[in-house]
Design a protein around this nucleic acid. Structure first.
Lengths: 223, 223
DNA sequence: CGACCATCGAATGTCAACATTCGACATTGA
DNA sequence: TCAATGTCGAATGTTGACATTCGATGGTCG
């Protein structure tokens, strides 16, 4: 499968740039994004910046109102609760649908992703890399489910989840590193099996575990 | 509670106008929406139309690509399958969350909505009115769940569901009219009860029934 | 006769200037 | 001193003109 090579506009480019800046920590949660500033900084027109910010709003990374600056979302316990509750429902549907529709090649791809994940966990890759591998694994499950609307819903919270990962504290990361491979391997096992209720249950539990760990770190160190 | 009196821009206005035109049947599924035409017809600039169409795309009512006209979505069996599968998962989460968080006043509001629904079903209101009452009922459940991300996900398929309703054939409408009150009343009963698994199951079943009826009418008369 | 390619028209992407609106600061009065 | 209000600056909403791209049409070559 070749990379998409899809023709994109400046708006998408601007959205990518701003998104990366947020994930790199160069733009903090809660910061205000002024269209004029970004337009000048990125070297594109305000219209393009505007469209790009609209895309980021679709991803839930920023919020905006009438004649009010768009701001990067805050990361509060409530936000985490909301996103992970929704994610549990989506992951459950994605997993059960993928189990019925998946081909052998598709499941093998999941094995490959887990292998890469294991390698990174052992070699001491950065937390960010590990989190990216985690997301890539779930991306593949959504891809196997082959439901455009479901994938779109996933994309409306995917970026927020990635942002949450940036707030993880060190000890939580160690805990995460110890479990991540095992948990994902269990998902693949269930995808290959016949017990759909068990798969549905575990897909939700996988998310619930992540939610609880994340909320615990936030209460310990409320930044 | 006063009406919001929220200040809106021309883009939102344009989005509302186009959305209504689609629901009124003045713009058919699959039709191409040219920015220049709409701008002239609505008396606003192309930029505003552009933003409005972006909003409709967020609702899944239209699709667009790079340098390609945005088009109203088609209603194929696959679209129905995708949307209703996702809706089942969302409704399940909304119902179970609402059961835990709902106040007595909130549940009473549901009773009121059902009463209005029953009245309309008896007095021979139009299918469109009945469908609107149906959506209003589920809107209230999402409101009770009090999860902004979940509500946002609901809004990305709500308009599509309304569009699907327009394709319903007469005999399916009769069937729908006979069951609609009973089914929704059962949901409220379960919301007031203690059996969460039963509520989760029935919230999904309620959607599955609608999906099957709709798909059956589409196979009989594939427009 | 079929397939490939250049050309053209129409529609979208981009831009910079103008109009409108919000939030904050200073001012005034009790 | 505090609260209400008028004023001002800065940022967003809106607009029309310009640049770019897609799809079709027609022609040419194998």
């Amino acid at each position: 499968m070749l990379p998409k090579a899809t023709r994109r506009g400046l708006a998408d480019e601007a959205a990518d740039l701003v998104r990366d800046a947020i994930f790199a920590g160069r733009i903090a949660p809660g910061a205000r994004l002024r269209e004029v500033n970004l337009a000048e900084e990125l070297g594109v027109s305000r219209g393009s910046v505007r469209d790009g910010l609209a895309q980021l709003e679709k991803e839930g990374l920023v919020r905006s109102g009438w004649h009010r600056s768009t701001t990067v979302i805050d990361v509060t316990p409530r936000d985490v609760q909301e996103v992970y509750e929704l994610r549990a429902a989506l992951d459950r549907l994605a997993a059960t649908t993928a189990r019925r529709a998946a081909t052998e090649a598709g499941l093998d791809a999941l094995d490959g992703l887990i292998a890469g994940m294991e390698e990174r966990a052992r070699d001491g890759a950065s937390d960010s890399e590990l989190a990216a591998a985690d997301l890539a694994f779930h991306d593949q499950i959504y891809h196997l489910a082959d439901n455009d609307r479901l994938t779109a819903a996933w994309h409306t919270i995917r970026s927020q989840i990635r942002l949450f990962h940036l707030c993880r504290i060190a000890d939580a990361a160690a805990d995460y590193r110890a479990r991540v491979v095992e948990e994902h391997r269990k998902i693949v096992d269930l995808l290959r099996g016949d017990d759909e209720p068990a798969l549905a249950r575990y897909a939700q539990e996988h998310v619930d575990i992540a939610r609880r760990v994340l909320l615990a770190t936030m209460e310990e160190a409320p930044s």
